[in-house]
Amino acid sequence: MSLKITVAAPFKQMHRAEMDRNQFVFFLALDRKWMNVDQANAVLRLAASSGLVEIENGKVFPAFDVASVSIPLGFRPGPEIFEAPDPCHDLVRRIADATGREENAVIAEMNGVIDGEFDGHLRAGAAAVLLARRYNVTWSDLLPAIREGVLEER
């Protein structure tokens, strides 16, 4: 959540619906002094890969309603914003919540699906989707990120 707040901050503070890539980095690194320039560029790349922003022709556009994000007084992003979200883990958490089981039990069941039903020829993300379908857990919003993760594992 703090990545979303970090991304929303420049747009809210500068009252802009779009900004140049350099303005975005300048705000995070030099204006607020939250991080260095390399880290600010990393935040921008992570936000783009997470679907929080779109970058076209050097312009940055938020892909969410910036007005709906509340920036706490004294907010300063922590190191957790650099951690890439794991859609497979998010889906495991959803399955665990829906079935009332521990995440470890869901992971064990995933491993059973991978080994028992597919002889080890199935990726973890695909196994998580299969389990989500079995338990009627919503997963379609995570599909693009899961698909990307499965393709990167090749």
Score class of each variant (00 low, 15 high):
3 L>Q: 03
3 L>K: 11
3 L>S: 09
5 I>Q: 03
6 T>R: 09
8 A>W: 00
9 A>K: 03
11 F>M: 02
11 F>N: 01
12 K>S: 06
15 H>I: 05
17 A>V: 12
17 A>K: 13
18 E>Y: 11
19 M>W: 12
20 D>M: 13
20 D>N: 10
25 V>C: 12
27 F>L: 01
28 L>E: 07
33 K>Q: 15
33 K>H: 12
34 W>E: 06
36 N>D: 15
37 V>G: 00
39 Q>P: 08
46 L>T: 10
46 L>S: 04
53 V>W: 01
53 V>M: 00
55 I>G: 00
55 I>W: 02
56 E>C: 00
56 E>T: 13
57 N>L: 14
57 N>H: 08
57 N>C: 12
59 K>W: 10
60 V>Q: 05
63 A>E: 14
63 A>C: 12
65 D>V: 00
66 V>C: 13
69 V>T: 12
69 V>H: 08
77 P>S: 06
78 G>I: 05
79 P>Q: 14
80 E>A: 05
80 E>H: 01
81 I>C: 05
82 F>A: 07
82 F>Y: 15
85 P>W: 03
86 D>A: 08
87 P>E: 02
90 D>Q: 12
92 V>T: 02
92 V>E: 12
96 A>D: 10
96 A>M: 08
97 D>H: 06
100 G>T: 08
101 R>I: 04
102 E>W: 11
102 E>R: 13
104 N>P: 06
106 V>A: 05
106 V>W: 07
106 V>E: 02
110 M>A: 09
112 G>Y: 06
112 G>C: 13
113 V>H: 01
114 I>K: 07
116 G>I: 05
116 G>A: 08
116 G>P: 00
116 G>Q: 01
120 G>M: 02
121 H>F: 10
123 R>W: 14
125 G>E: 10
125 G>C: 05
126 A>S: 10
127 A>N: 09
130 L>E: 12
131 L>P: 00
131 L>M: 07
135 Y>T: 04
136 N>A: 14
137 V>S: 02
137 V>G: 04
138 T>A: 15
139 W>H: 14
140 S>V: 09
141 D>P: 03
141 D>R: 11
146 I>W: 08
149 G>K: 10
149 G>S: 14
150 V>A: 00
151 L>G: 00
152 E>L: 15
152 E>D: 05
154 R>L: 14
154 R>P: 02
154 R>C: 11
